[in-house]
Design a binder for these strands. Structure first.
Lengths: 168, 168
DNA sequence: TCGAAACTTCAAAATTTATTGAAAGTTTGG
DNA sequence: CCAAACTTTCAATAAATTTTGAAGTTTCGA
């Protein structure tokens, strides 16, 4: 398979993959493009490669920067801004975990705390089922939260090495 | 907070939560409704509680059954079918991990295997960056795949207990 | 300070995804 | 076997999301 073809397939699959994870297709494709690009690209490069509009490109680059996955690069003597993606996949994973934890897991845990204090008699099976379900999710959620904190701080070699050894 | 209100909030939040994870709102809401329901419900109960159409309800129940999160229950003397959700959250998590691994991670790894065999000279930095990126994702992906296999087979107490102790 | 290049914004349009509801299909009990 | 009760399907519709592109703003060099 030729590079051009392989790269296109990677970009397109990464985009489709992203949509299963609540990330929009274009954002994932821009990320894939930058991940496989040896040098930083300009907004115009990205527009052209992916055949998307200026506005769309701009918005999604900005969003990738918010996620900490892409950064602006200034190239001396160039007026335009260039963009580059973090290539160390372990760092990428940690960054995504960190953001999603903050944006999704933590608010959910806060909500569950509130919901657990529902009024009513636990002898009522409706009340009991509700409280037990919420408590169960909360317990697992808190454990996951702590485990993810460790992952976020860990070095790849240590974390993965230990995981593999540990779980044989 | 009253039960009715708390439950509505739970259902609605679970639905919103689902949309960030590639699960449609209604499917997540039906799941939340069943999770917090002490007894099995019929399709009509679900339609009424969530105020959605018969077709929509039916499709999403079927999808939840495909995911292994909900099952049909036959109640003696009743003509209608009843549905109930697995209440053990650890089992729910394992089931979701198992399905997503199969549906998403495994196909992605297969693709990466193929893409890594791109033609070309590694001294070309475009080729090199592409191969290195793909290889990096693949390596981490394979490790994640194995770790998830362990999780899927594990008991909650063992797994979470070890995680917490281990990572202190 | 000005002008052009670069960047950002956002309302409207296009696309994608979810939902409805009526028709077709099944199952069950008499 | 028939009719009633229930379930499933799917084309049409509605809703949500993404994309566009042109107008507006900022930045930089001369």
């Amino acid at each position: 398979m030729k590079l051009i073809e392989a790269r296109q397939q990677f970009i397109s699959s990464w985009g489709a993959f992203g949509t299963h994870w609540g990330i929009n297709r274009t954002m994932a494709q821009i990320h894939a493009l930058l991940l496989t690009s040896p040098d930083p690209l300009t907004q115009d490069d990205i527009m052209e490669e992916l055949d998307i509009s200026r506005g769309n490109t701009n918005m999604n680059i900005r969003e990738l920067i918010n996620w900490g996955l892409v950064e602006r690069v200034l190239i001396p003597g160039e007026r335009k801004e260039f963009f580059t993606a973090e290539k160390d996949i372990w760092k990428v994973v940690k960054q995504i975990v960190k953001e999603r934890k903050k944006r999704e897991l933590e608010p959910m845990l806060q909500l569950l705390d509130k919901l657990e204090n529902v009024e009513g008699d636990k002898r009522d099976k409706h009340v009991k089922t509700f409280i037990d379900t919420v408590a169960g999710i909360k317990k697992l959620g808190r454990q996951a939260d702590k485990s993810l904190d460790v992952l976020i701080k860990a070095e790849e070699n240590w974390f993965m090495g230990t995981m593999m050894k540990f779980f044989k």
